[in-house]
Amino acid sequence: MAGVPTSLPESRLGSTLRGDAWWMEILAVVIVLGGFGAYATLRAFENAYYFWGPYLSPFYSPLIDPQHHWWPFSPALLILVGPLGFRATCYYYRKAYYRAFFFDPPACAVGESARRNYRGETAFPFILQNVHRYFFYLAVLFIAFLWRDAFRSFFFEGRFGVGVGTLVLTLNVSLLSLYTFSCHSLRHLAGGKLDCFSCATFGRPRFAAWRVSTFLNERHMLFAWCSLVSVGFADFYVRMVACGTFRDLRLL
């Protein structure tokens, strides 16, 4: 029983006795989220190659003042705040970026950097996360526009058709819808806020709605990543077709 004078780990950034690769998760988030952020910024400022034929890039939809009558910059900048704000205040993404970018905490039971005055979501800026449900309302509006875009992508100069781009846009809006409708705020509004389903007015239908949104909500993280990739890819595809690098394959 030899005493091994092992001192306990001090709290430093990254200190832990965990033996597994806990940093993998934040690394993956940094790469994917960071990569997406960089790409999206470039594209938003690019102000070009955002449509081709019936395809409109989701980064630019709804398209506002593309002729620059009153808005001299990229039209993407006008609408960006919607999807960006929605994702930035999303309960899931909050977890992901607090961990990966703020190391608050880097992973469970892993030390943080030297003490600072932690305020969590009680003070500016993060207290603003509380507006998430308003971004949700906005997001629903965006989803409507994107479904319209997906619908339009079936009509090539007035004739019905299906191109690879059609599939890309339709798949994208489907995933975005799943992401949006698995939102925690919706789950709350749908029925979660009730204390007693069986005694409230319209309790039963709201219970059913809550059940459905709970089912979706349990997969919110999955939808968050899938839709992030799909929206990036949809824009990328439109851009590549618009600038002539790819040729859109017509399937029908």
């Binding site: 909050r94 977890k95 905490p105 469970c108 305020r119 969590g120 979501e121 009680t122 993060f126 207290i127």
Partner: peptide, 11 residues
């Protein structure tokens, strides 16, 4: 009770 201090990091 400081609910706002939780930053929903899920540990």
């Amino acid at each position: 009770l400081g609910l706002g201090l939780c930053n929903i990091t899920k540990c």
